[in-house]
Design a protein around this nucleic acid. Structure first.
Lengths: 254, 254
DNA sequence: CGCATTCTGCCCGGTTCCGTACTGAAACTT
DNA sequence: AAGTTTCAGTACGGAACCGGGCAGAATGCG
């Protein structure tokens, strides 16, 4: 695990996490002195299922993949993704003290802002605005999980793949996404060679270009059409509930 | 919608909801005067996706199915189940004001304890014990969703079916479960006739007996073996986190 | 009781995806 | 530059499921 950087006490302007930046300044100020920036590399393990949650992470880059451990088939399968728009470790706010999933950093090396789990829980207990903001994100994440269920039930591999590519793309700043077939396999629950074939079909559609270890997004609209309504709903809910926490009436307008 | 019963103000001994009964008496006392018992029939719609959440329900019988609306294929697909062990309407506690899914009553007619959503939110804001108990249930429900994703990715129809039957069985008091092929279809995301075939395979294994509109559980162990580790984890977490809220050290023992 | 409705069983060709295994290409190591 | 490791492409028979449709059985209703 590559941990670099030692900044401590992060100001609002310096925070690269969208959820934190959406907080009202008064709420952010509570966290600010306790945030610490740490650098991680691709495939670093941020947490392991069953271990106590001591730290909560707010990504500034990269993608934290939530992987449910399974005994059969692949050793684990993706059930969610979190990038700069959110945080991982929320079970600590829900009254659990252990990680329900493995969490690994994916796609690109990046920094995460971390904070002691007990401290964040205590702050969230005291401050309703902070608590609501964090819980809203958790809620959006569960909506996303619902759509993942739907997608895995009714869509063939390449349509599910289109959805995951969009989820990655939304959380990264480049059209070029580092993602091997093996990683796709853990999101799609298929053989590695079915990934190859599905990816070729997306290439034939000119939706993406695939290189060794990378996928380049060429046509988001095509990907979105393939994903159908398994993509978009959670994203709209995120905007409605979180994007402008500073404008308390935004919800009613939506 | 069949709404009968007019009891108002439910005592702890009269509450048929396991989550409520697990609450410390002081926390339950806050809710007690505001709970109202209402009777519903099978297939009654408790809520519709997109509508404002005005009421939160604690089932005492029957099963509340959470159905995600989809444009394609079947019009909706099951993403979760809640029986007497929990409640529905939790988005109101997570800072959302709208139902993310349709909610329908399944399996058997039953009563639900209902409470005004704004009032419950306010009570949960004030009382940390109550809030934690409710959030723990929400958390277990999301763990269950994670396993639903896993199951739909790696298991064939009859193994997923075995899992859903167990989830129903846990929430009902009889081995006889009212469930049509069409309802299975919404949980499994397959053609109705694939349900017929999967059910026949479970019958051939002597795991269940199937009659018109009903499934009778014959061998839970066989069903559990088929479900593999997609069944059991969420249930253990429920026990660890909720079953003895009155014994605050229970978590550490697990 | 007779009729309409709901639910279940079955059939067929066609497609997707599986399990397994082998090959070649790219990238990293020293 | 050579060797090792990681990734990607391909093949092939077989199983799981699909889409659609039809027939029969159980149930509910007038």
């Amino acid at each position: 695990m590559t941990v670099g950087g030692t900044d401590r006490g992060i100001g609002l302007e310096q925070a690269g996490n969208v959820l934190l930046r959406a907080l009202p300044p008064s709420a952010f100020a509570l966290l600010s002195p306790h945030l610490e920036r740490a650098a991680f590399s691709v495939d670093d393990v941020l947490a392991e299922a069953g271990e106590p949650i001591t730290t909560i992470f707010f990504p500034e880059g990269g993608i934290a993949a939530l992987l449910d451990p399974v005994e059969e088939g692949p050793r684990r399968l993706a059930v969610g993704l979190v990038g700069r728009e959110g945080f991982v470790g929320w079970p600590a706010l829900m009254g659990d003290d252990r990680w329900p999933h493995d969490v690994m950093l994916r796609a690109e090396a990046g920094t995460l802002l971390r904070i002691d789990a007990a401290r964040l829980s205590a702050l969230a207990e005291e401050n309703e605005v902070l608590r609501t903001a964090l819980l809203r994100f958790v809620h959006v994440a569960t909506i996303q999980m619902g759509r993942t269920i739907v997608s895995s039930l009714i869509h063939p591999v390449e349509r599910r793949m289109a959805r995951w590519i969009l989820l990655y793309h939304d959380r990264l700043s480049s059209d070029e996404i580092c993602l091997t077939h093996e990683e796709f396999r853990l999101m799609l629950g298929v053989r590695r060679s079915s990934v190859t074939e599905a990816l070729h079909r997306l290439e034939a559609d000119h939706a993406v270009r695939a290189l060794r270890g990378r996928v380049i997004v060429r046509d988001r609209d095509k990907l979105a059409a393939l994903a159908g309504d398994t993509y978009g709903h959670a994203e709209r809910e995120y905007r409605r509930l979180i994007a402008d926490l500073n404008e308390p009436d935004a919800r009613r307008r939506a």
